[in-house]
Write a protein that binds this DNA or RNA. Structure first.
Lengths: 220, 220
DNA sequence: GTCTATATGCGGATAGAC
DNA sequence: GTCTATCCGCATATAGAC
């Protein structure tokens, strides 16, 4: 547990935002959980929204840096023949799941907050978060396009977006009892996502088929 | 536009909950949008939470019924040789996207609310929603297991959960400019998800590999 | 059924003593 | 830097006239 006030607030806010969401969590919740005075939040951070930004910034920058660094490694190691789609995906997916190991004592609660952020549409979250995410996202789209030249670029973007959704959903619900295997090894979750995503991204393009019940036009 | 108070409230609440989220939207927002009196919400529904339940109930039951009905059709049409995975998935994915057509004048805003509900962890949402969803979910897992006997049951569940996440994410962001192709034909989105999901679900099982940067153990 | 007026509480934020 | 006390607005919900 952190010892100084600022970190105690950050830790408590991270946990509560992850569990309850941003607007549902009050500053009083946070300060009582952290064992600090109510006024200290505004003293140290200025506002509730600024606190959220600080909570996110503490974790997100390292994650995105790690993603880009791993992507570089993967591409360099593969040389001219190009990397495997699985390795590109692993560079994208693994870092947030590895937060705990990567950040020392980083609370794994943050993983759920990250899942939540991927899904919140509030203006506050967007400005604090989406911009830098899109930079990383674009880099991975480019890398995927080189590996999958037969898939239309728009389709790759759509499919990669599906993977982001699957990842966010997994992080959101990973610790909810009764819905998923809570005791599951994080590495297994990563590998499942990687295999699933690589197969989905590589699926051959089809001619559009009419969408109606009972349709069997896709064949198999 | 609905003419009587109760429906006007439901429509406005549906739209605002979808755009802003449940806790962020006030009853004042809803009544002023609906052009009705503030007190009428409590008169007709009893509380804000009960209003949310009513908003969800109006759409969810038909969607889940349609899903199960289509799954039955697909399995019956396929006979003893079993249906294609794509057709099972389409039975699951298409109904929420088709809300507008299926419910007459149903507001397509609900699709975003549905995406949000899949992701909200609040107690209110869960009790109102998760239970009946899990029933449908289980039915589709069973059908998938019959089609994919080589994939471990736990893995099928995990992968189908990925698809739910991809679907929810897509619905959430479908109308957000700048992130996805907003003008995209819903049928195309459905087909992309179906092809992506079928390929991902069918991916062969691999031996676990150590997860580290630069890992190329997946081969290709 | 619909309105006005209001009860009651919690929210974020701040002033000012220490 | 930390605390107490408080401002002030907005939230849900309800009482009671019409």
């Amino acid at each position: 547990m952190a010892t100084d006030t600022k970190d105690r607030i950050l830790d408590a806010a991270e946990q509560l935002f992850a569990d309850l969401g941003f607007s549902t969590t009050s500053l009083r919740d946070i300060t009582s959980e952290a064992g600090v005075n109510l006024a200290s939040v505004n003293y140290h951070f200025g506002s509730k929204e600024a606190l959220l930004t600080a909570v996110l910034a503490r974790r997100i920058a390292p994650i995105n840096e790690l993603r880009l660094q791993r992507l570089d490694e993967v591409e360099r190691a593969a040389g001219s023949m190009g990397p495997a789609m699985e390795d590109i995906l692993r560079a994208f997916i693994a870092p947030p799941f590895e937060m705990k190991a990567a950040c020392g004592d980083g609370d794994r609660k943050f993983v759920r907050l990250l899942g939540r952020v991927h899904v919140e549409t509030n203006e506050e979250f967007r400005t604090a978060f989406i911009d830098q995410f899109m930079t990383v996202f674009s880099r991975f789209i480019e890398a995927s396009q080189r590996v999958l030249p037969d898939i239309e670029p728009n389709e790759i973007t759509a499919r990669f977006w599906f993977i982001v959704g699957a990842m966010a959903h997994t992080m959101m619900w990973a610790q909810t009892a009764g819905l998923t295997d809570t005791a599951r090894d994080p590495n297994e979750a990563i590998e499942s996502l990687v295999q699933f995503g690589a197969a989905g991204l590589s699926a051959p393009m089809l001619q559009p088929v009419p969408v109606r019940s009972g349709n069997t036009g896709t064949g198999r």
